[in-house]
Design a protein around this nucleic acid. Structure first.
Lengths: 143, 143
DNA sequence: TAAAATTAAATTGTGTACAATATATTTGAA
DNA sequence: TTCAAATATATTGTACACAATTTAATTTTA
């Protein structure tokens, strides 16, 4: 039963680290009136300008049950527009408003702030990221 | 702005890995009618037999706003008892019921199933865990 | 081409997370 | 000793996550 000890688990540190990181982000993102998942949506849109709900879901591994209400809240804050695709009415296109685009400037220092809060060497962070990305691609039960 | 690219982030893989892992646990835990956080509570209690809400919160980094309703659900499922401490009425002691103790046998193979689902070498998993534990202890903004 | 299958979002319901606040109890200092 | 501060838990409110189902539109196929 040694494997059932909390300290021996790999999964608990991942779960704890994930919540730690969003808690470190929270005060920074609060200044932009954003939650961490909303910030992730903006990271995608700052690269792509426009994306469908499906595309956002594939990049962030979130389903419409999570994204639909989240995107509605972002629309209420006038960060994005949600428009049905003319060519395929099933699809909803998410595009940045001017305010949504401008927020990128305000957010530009967040990654550096994060790194310094975590007290991590860059090489260590890169190595950890690579291991996690391996974990994400290797598991035999894709979501 | 290179740091604002999703692929360059450390935090997104941690967030994604955390959700991936709970999604791998979910079908296994569903057979025990448990959620992942409920399973974590049992991991603590299988080691300690009894703990206060505060102790559970310290081990799992969760507050009473999360734990109180979670523990009430576990009590409804008759896995734990919640009893006010006689010596200090502020404290609530959480103890395992017989059913809660017995569940440990049913859960004994879950860690192995998990590892095999993740397609990871043990050494790799240990290294990743150590890096995450370093991250958890090193950050300068403790929760 | 009309019905069946597929697809994309939305909806519903349950269970975390967590900030902020409230309540009740205990401790400690004047 | 008494009242203010501290402590432990509970409550309230907001926002994810995600399974399961529904709705509407498109594509496939008989």
């Amino acid at each position: 039963m040694e494997h059932l000890k909390l300290d021996n688990q790999l999964c608990f540190p991942i779960y704890a680290a994930s919540r730690l990181i969003t808690s470190v982000y929270r005060p920074m993102l609060e200044e932009l009136s954003l939650t961490y998942p909303q910030y992730l949506v903006l990271l995608v849109l700052w690269e792509k300008e426009s994306a469908t709900v499906k595309e956002l879901g594939e990049k962030l591994w979130l389903d419409s049950g999570t994204l639909t209400p989240l995107l509605k809240r972002m629309q209420e804050k006038e960060l994005v527009l949600r428009t049905r695709d003319k060519a395929d009415e099933r699809v909803v296109n998410i595009t940045l408003t001017e305010a949504g685009k401008q927020l990128k400037n305000k957010a530009s220092d967040i990654p550096n702030q994060l790194i310094s809060c975590m007290n991590m060497e860059i090489e260590q962070a890169v190595q950890l990221r690579n291991q996690l990305q391996a974990l994400l691609t290797n598991h035999s039960n894709p979501i």
